[in-house]
């Protein structure tokens, strides 16, 4: 009885301490993580997102293809990677799958005003002010018409993040070279290999949704990913950062089971030995 009392005191002290340094301290340090806003409420929704894909393709070739390719539709960009880096400090993305991962209203507004949509005043793409709302609708319709429907987490991560972020442990190199990125963004964006361990899932979702949520003033642009795409990216980052989770969880059960049996045996032996005392 006395020993149980001591144990109880010990457990209470440990639990109070644990509560203080883990959940409590972290809630004070990090505050509330902002909920991701997948509707992009701040973005005007007056630009149409539907139209004629054929017309859209023409408009795309005339207005976008000098920098952007659409490999899937046989459109090659007008400039190669090095030329693009020389003028924009970053390699413009191929837009084959952009319709599948970016919210359509975000995309439409982005074409007209990239700096405001991404919350990055230094964003490399110039605003396409020459396009009418209807033109934008046609282009968005075109991009959506060629999208691949079910991209997996890895593909989306490469499409959405791979322009600037490397994932060294997966042998994925950023499309834009490090020096150019440093010039463009002020620093080399972090490697994403173990980002799933460095940050909580909720934080990553909120951060990808709007980088200003997590790091006010950061030069990482808001990408306008859809909810589904964001979650797939985060799931992927989480999985590559902790590849042995299933093995660990399964082995843990065995080890703990083994030790419970061990505790039973040692308890029986202790009883036996101590019975003859007193």
């Amino acid at each position: 009885m006395k020993e149980l009392k001591i144990l109880l005191i010990l457990v209470v002290i440990v639990l109070v301490g644990y509560w203080g340094i883990e959940p409590y301290a972290h809630s004070v340090m990090h505050g509330e993580v902002k909920h991701p806003d997948y509707e992009y409420k701040d973005i005007p929704k007056n630009i149409p997102t539907t139209g004629d894909p054929a017309k859209g393709k023409e408009l795309f070739t005339a207005n976008c293809a000098s920098c952007h390719g659409v490999k899937k539709d046989g459109i090659n960009p007008g400039m190669d990677a090095n030329a693009a880096i020389a003028s924009f400090k970053v390699v413009p993305p191929d837009l084959s799958n952009i319709g599948a991962i970016v919210d359509e209203h975000f995309l439409a507004y982005f074409i007209k005003n990239p700096q405001d949509a991404t919350k990055n005043p230094k964003f490399a793409m110039p605003p396409m002010a020459q396009l009418s709302d209807e033109d934008v609708g046609n282009i968005v319709a075109y991009l959506k018409s060629i999208e691949k429907k079910d991209l997996d987490g890895k593909e989306i991560t490469i499409e959405a993040c791979g322009r600037c972020h490397s994932i060294k442990y997966q042998k994925i190199e950023a499309v834009t070279p490090k020096d150019a990125l440093k010039d463009y963004l002020g620093k080399v964006p972090p490697d994403l290999s173990v980002m799933g361990k460095a940050k909580e899932i909720e934080y990553l979702e909120s951060f990808i949704n709007n980088p200003q949520n997590g790091l006010p003033g950061t030069s990482m642009p808001r990408l306008g990913l859809t909810k589904e795409a964001t979650e797939k990216v985060v799931t992927y980052l989480d999985k590559i950062a902790d590849p042995h989770r299933d093995q660990r969880n399964a082995l843990g059960v065995w080890v703990l089971g083994y030790l419970v049996v061990m505790a039973g045996l040692t308890f029986a032996w202790k009883k036996k030995i101590w019975k003859n005392l007193h």
Binding site: V255, Y258, V261, L265, T266, W269, K272, I273
Partner: peptide, 23 residues
């Protein structure tokens, strides 16, 4: 009898510990 019972438990413990060491 007591001794043998103690021994049995001790051996069982030893054997179980050996399983752990094996792992």
């Amino acid at each position: 009898e007591k001794v043998s019972r103690r021994d049995f438990l001790l051996y069982a413990m030893g054997a179980w510990a050996a399983v752990g060491v094996g792992g």
